[in-house]
Design a protein around this nucleic acid. Structure first.
Lengths: 184, 184
DNA sequence: TAGTTATATGTAAAAAGAGACATACAATCA
DNA sequence: TGATTGTATGTCTCTTTTTACATATAACTA
């Protein structure tokens, strides 16, 4: 059982999802390709952490919809009791930032302008998602879902995503102010 | 040539370092173990991107001090001209946050309290480093190293690290306010 | 004095992750 | 009509990363 497996169980603890849906939903928290997810799901099924049901579809290909078992929930509970391992961030832009002065300011600027675009797209998505979650959870303006609410987890995560995104936009904007506008 | 290789070249573009030092210095930007770095350095040496010199030490084991070549600098310049790939963050705590409600609030709180400690230690280190860098670069109060300054890269990176760290502390603190203090 | 930590370099094996190959159906687009 | 995109599942291979094995010296600690 690796972290990815717990990621799948976590998502399944909130709703029934196909491998494909799990892959899409997991991206913001623990990026993984379908080639990693499908074999893992079949392992989890063998270990009776999850079960699946074949769901036939007419407009789309048939799918396997997975459900977490009691054993799976127990695994999650046990895993939650041990401290989380240190976060790992790998960002090429950070290495490039370190040796910026080897190239033209125009080239440096490009790196941060395109990253800024990337974060702006993310920001918009997160803002849409957070209003969606708050609407679904049915809390009033300014309120937060309760500890028992199944929406609390998603709300906490989206808040982190939003905060980090804003900080990164701030950083990129600041860097663009530091890099001279033209090759002087 | 993968990102790790460029990470090593980036560090070597600013100073002469041993494999061990490279490993330590690289951690905040592109975490890697020594088992990954030593073979890579010997490849880079074969490709004439770096050279090394055996340096004998009396109090510590002897070491190989690496130097970047002109070819290595050219590789860096070329690499800087292509856009940076998307950043990858993997954080177990985010997955745990998603299914928080399956365990006692006390257990949930522990996760965030220990993470908060982790970030506070990081914050202190980054603050020490940034004052150190600014002192070395010789800029005046409130000023920023110039584009040509070899300290600009480190200053930009430390600012990002500091900003992110503060945001994460803010997030953890907020989460701890959301999780009820006792099992009610 | 025995164990740990730090410095320093290396290899081997296992696990994790990315990319390509493979198939299939429906919808949309040029 | 042919190409692409989205949905859906799967395997295989290659790269990347982690963990373990291996050695050696010095300093510090219990």
């Amino acid at each position: 059982m690796n972290t990815l497996a717990y990621g799948l169980l976590s998502l399944l603890s909130h709703s029934h999802l196909s491998g494909y849906d799990l892959m899409l939903k997991l991206q913001p928290f623990w990026p993984a390709k379908h080639s990693q997810i499908y074999p893992l799901l079949s392992n989890l099924e063998k270990e009776e952490q999850v079960t699946f049901e074949l769901v036939a579809q007419t407009d789309k290909p048939d799918k396997k919809v997975y459900t977490i078992t009691e054993k799976g929930i127990d695994s999650l509970r046990e895993w939650l009791s041990v401290p989380a391992s240190d976060p790992v961030l790998r960002d090429e832009l950070m290495i490039k930032a370190y040796c910026l002065s080897f190239v033209d300011p125009a080239i440096s600027r490009k790196l941060f302008v395109s990253r800024l675009e990337y974060y702006h797209i993310k920001l918009q998505r997160y803002e849409e998602k957070i209003t969606h979650i708050l609407k679904k959870s049915g809390v009033n303006e300014g309120e937060i879902p309760s500890y028992q609410s199944p929406y609390l987890g998603a709300y906490i995560l989206l808040n982190k995503a939003l905060m980090s995104c804003k900080t990164n936009i701030e950083w990129c904007t600041w860097v663009l102010k530091v890099i001279p506008a033209d090759n002087e």
